[in-house]
C-alpha cells in the first residue's frame, strides 16, 4: 500500500494493528495473571479455597495452596512435585513423607550450571544449636525451629491483601471485633515467618527467644532479645538505620553455634572477622568485639557495668529529687509571700 500522507499511514497502521492487538488480548491477560509452574494441575484441587480436613489427631490441616500465594514466594518457578517428590498418583493417597529441603532440585545455579540444592544450609542447620540433637530431651528438640518455621512453606510472604481476602470467608461466622482478631491471627501466622528485612529477622528470632516461658523450658537465656533492643544496633534499627547488624548477621542464619564453640562466628578466634564482615567495623579489636554483648548486665555476669548503670540511675534520681524539692519549696515560699504576706513582693 503506497503511503501518501502521514495521516494515511497512521490509519492503515491502525487498521492492520487493531485485529492483531485484539488477537493478543488473551495472552496479555495471562501475562497480568501469571500462572503457577504447575504443569500437572495440582491447583485443580489445592486451589480450592479452604481445602482442609481434621487429621487423625484432630488437628486442623489446611491444604489450600493458591497460585497467588506461591507466586509471591521464591519457589514460584518450582513445580510442586520437585519438593513433594513422593506423590506419584492422582488423586494421591495421604502424604506421609515430609518435604526434604536438602534434596537436589531440578534447577541449575545461575551462571554455574551446577545442580541447585539447599543441602549446605540444611547440613549447617543440623550442626547448629537449632539442629535435632539426640542428647537433648524431646521437648527441647520439639521447640527447635526447622526450615519451615522461619521460611514458611508456601507462604514465603503473605501480602496483607490476601489476608483481607481470606478474612471474607471468616466473616460468614465471625463479625465485628472478633473478625479483627481473626485477621490479626492469620496475619501473624502467615507473615512474620518470612523475613524480608532486619526488623523482620529480629522479630522472627524474638518470636521464640523473647518468650521467657519457652526459653526457660529449654534452658536458654531469654534476656538476649531485651538486651539487643536496648543496645545500639537494636535502637538504631528501629529508627531506620540501614545496615546495623541483625541477629543473623553475627550469629548466621543456619550455622548458629554457641560462643564457646571454636567453629562459632562469635568465638574468640572468629568474632573480629564477624564484626568486620561487609565493612561494618573496620579493623575491630577483640575488646571492641567483646563490648557488643547484649545480655543485660548483672552483678555476676558484668559487675563493673552493672554497678555503673545503677550508679547513674541513683545519681539521676537523687539529684533530681533534691533539685525538685528545692524548686517546690522555693515556689511554695513565693506563693505564701505573694498571697498571704499581703504585699506585691515577698519580704526581703
Amino acid at each position: 500500500m503506497p503511503v501518501t500522507t502521514c495521516r494515511g499511514a497512521l490509519a492503515s497502521l491502525a487498521r492492520g494493528l487493531l485485529p492483531a492487538l485484539l488477537a493478543l488480548l488473551p495472552l496479555a491477560s495471562s501475562l497480568a495473571n501469571p500462572r503457577l509452574a504447575d504443569s500437572e494441575n495440582c491447583e485443580l484441587c489445592h486451589g480450592l479455597p479452604l481445602l482442609s480436613r481434621h487429621d487423625d489427631k484432630g488437628r486442623f490441616r489446611l491444604y489450600e495452596v493458591s497460585a497467588e500465594t506461591v507466586m509471591h514466594s521464591s519457589h514460584k518457578g518450582i513445580g510442586c512435585r520437585d519438593c513433594h517428590a513422593d506423590i506419584d498418583a492422582f488423586p494421591h493417597p495421604q502424604v506421609v513423607q515430609k518435604v526434604d529441603c536438602g534434596k537436589t532440585c531440578h534447577v541449575n545455579r545461575p551462571f554455574e550450571l551446577t545442580v541447585f540444592s539447599h543441602r549446605g544450609e540444611v547440613e549447617a542447620h543440623a550442626m547448629s544449636v537449632h539442629g535435632q540433637n539426640p542428647k537433648d530431651d524431646p521437648e527441647t528438640n520439639a521447640a527447635k525451629p526447622g526450615c519451615k518455621y522461619c521460611h514458611g512453606s508456601h507462604r514465603m510472604a503473605a501480602p496483607d491483601q490476601r489476608v483481607q481476602e481470606q478474612a471474607k470467608h471468616c466473616a460468614n461466622c465471625h463479625d465485628g471485633k472478633s473478625l479483627e482478631g481473626v485477621i490479626q491471627h492469620i496475619d501473624r501466622h502467615t507473615s512474620h515467618r518470612s523475613a524480608e528485612n532486619s526488623l523482620d529477622i529480629v522479630r522472627l528470632c524474638s518470636s521464640c527467644h523473647g518468650d521467657a516461658t519457652l526459653m526457660e523450658s529449654v534452658n536458654v537465656s531469654s534476656t538476649q532479645v531485651e538486651g539487643f533492643q536496648h543496645h545500639f544496633h537494636g535502637k538504631a534499627m528501629r529508627r531506620g538505620l540501614d545496615g546495623v547488624a541483625n541477629c543473623a548477621d553475627c550469629h548466621t542464619s543456619h550455622l548458629v553455634l554457641p560462643q564457646d564453640d571454636p567453629a562459632s562466628t562469635l568465638s574468640t578466634a572468629n568474632i573480629r572477622q564477624t564484626c568486620g564482615t561487609t565493612g561494618c567495623h573496620i579493623s575491630p579489636s577483640i575488646e571492641f568485639a567483646r563490648s557488643a554483648i547484649h545480655s543485660k548486665p548483672t552483678m555476676e555476669s558484668n559487675p563493673v557495668v552493672y554497678v555503673v548503670t545503677w550508679g547513674f540511675i541513683l545519681l539521676t534520681a537523687i539529684t533530681m529529687a533534691l533539685l525538685f524539692s528545692h524548686i517546690l519549696l522555693d515556689f511554695g515560699r513565693w506563693v505564701h509571700g505573694r498571697f498571704s504576706g499581703g504585699g506585691r513582693h515577698e519580704s526581703e
Binding site: F288, R290, N302, V304
Partner: peptide, 24 residues
C-alpha cells in the same frame, strides 16, 4: 570511634561509655 576505643581500653569501658552517654 568504638573500634579505636577497643584498642586502648577494655570492653567494659566501651559498655560504660554507652550507659554513661545515655544516662548523663
Amino acid at each position: 570511634y568504638p573500634e579505636a576505643s577497643g584498642q586502648w581500653f577494655p570492653s567494659e569501658v566501651i559498655q560504660i561509655a554507652y550507659v554513661a552517654h545515655s544516662d548523663e
